[in-house]
Simulated assay, not measured.
Amino acid sequence: MAQQALYRGTGRRKTSVARVRILPGEGKITVNGRDYTEYFPRLTYQHAIRSPLRILDAEGRYDIVVKVEGGGPTGQAEAVRHGIARALAEESESARAELKSAGLLTRDARAVERKKYGLKKARKRPQFSKR
């Protein structure tokens, strides 16, 4: 039987969705069944994922299990960060205040603008020809 999660959080960014479970443990972060350093080899993504833990000084206190889908690596890494922050915000009111002041609980609403008819992309126009 799987261990019961202490805290849960859902993180979103662009088209990525991350479901995060935080368990009592020694600081292992697993993303889609793999270690997070293997899943996100780029250091900037690894720092982004650990940032909520670093702010609360909680590194090494919890094991984190993440299922993430959709989007690319940047969107997924930021969705994981958002999910971890939301899950940790359930811990206490002071933790929530710290994460909120760091801007980690706010969902980044920026997404790809839709393509408009008559245009090549969302804003790019076809080439104008005088003759």
Rank of each mutant, 00 (worst) to 15 (best):
54 R>T: 15
56 L>H: 04
63 D>M: 06
40 F>C: 07
67 K>T: 13
56 L>C: 11
34 R>V: 13
2 A>N: 15
76 Q>W: 07
30 T>Q: 11
9 G>E: 03
5 A>E: 04
8 R>K: 14
52 P>Y: 06
33 G>V: 00
71 G>C: 15
27 G>M: 07
17 V>T: 15
24 P>S: 10
101 S>T: 10
120 K>G: 08
23 L>C: 02
89 A>K: 01
86 R>M: 03
48 A>G: 07
83 G>S: 01
37 T>S: 02
39 Y>P: 00
87 A>T: 01
119 L>E: 06
95 A>E: 05
23 L>V: 09
26 E>N: 02
74 T>E: 07
101 S>D: 13
34 R>S: 12
94 S>D: 10
117 Y>T: 00
119 L>C: 09
85 A>H: 01
118 G>T: 10
20 V>C: 03
107 R>I: 06
71 G>Y: 13
75 G>T: 14
43 L>R: 09
61 R>M: 10
101 S>E: 15
111 A>C: 09
86 R>E: 03
1 M>G: 15
78 E>S: 10
76 Q>C: 04
98 E>L: 15
107 R>T: 14
22 I>T: 03
114 R>M: 07
101 S>Q: 13
113 E>G: 12
108 D>I: 06
91 E>P: 00
55 I>M: 05
131 R>E: 13
43 L>H: 08
55 I>V: 14
19 R>Q: 09
131 R>S: 08
51 S>C: 09
19 R>D: 12
61 R>G: 02
82 H>M: 02
127 Q>H: 13
18 A>Y: 05
130 K>W: 14
8 R>H: 08
110 R>D: 09
51 S>V: 00
3 Q>T: 09
113 E>F: 01
64 I>C: 10
103 G>I: 10
79 A>S: 12
16 S>W: 04
38 E>K: 13
80 V>E: 01
2 A>T: 13
53 L>F: 11
111 A>Q: 07
109 A>W: 10
46 Q>W: 03
47 H>I: 15
130 K>G: 15
7 Y>T: 02
128 F>G: 10
8 R>Q: 11
107 R>Q: 03
14 K>Y: 04
68 V>H: 08
90 E>G: 00
36 Y>D: 05
64 I>N: 05
99 L>Y: 08
98 E>C: 05
109 A>Q: 09
126 P>R: 14
55 I>D: 04
20 V>H: 02
70 G>H: 10
61 R>E: 14
20 V>I: 12
89 A>E: 04
53 L>R: 02
58 A>K: 11
117 Y>G: 06
50 R>W: 01
49 I>H: 02
120 K>N: 11
57 D>T: 10
76 Q>K: 08
68 V>A: 09
42 R>E: 12
32 N>G: 02
21 R>G: 05
55 I>Y: 02
73 P>N: 14
68 V>W: 10
37 T>C: 04
16 S>I: 13
42 R>F: 14
36 Y>R: 06
124 K>V: 15
52 P>A: 12
124 K>G: 13
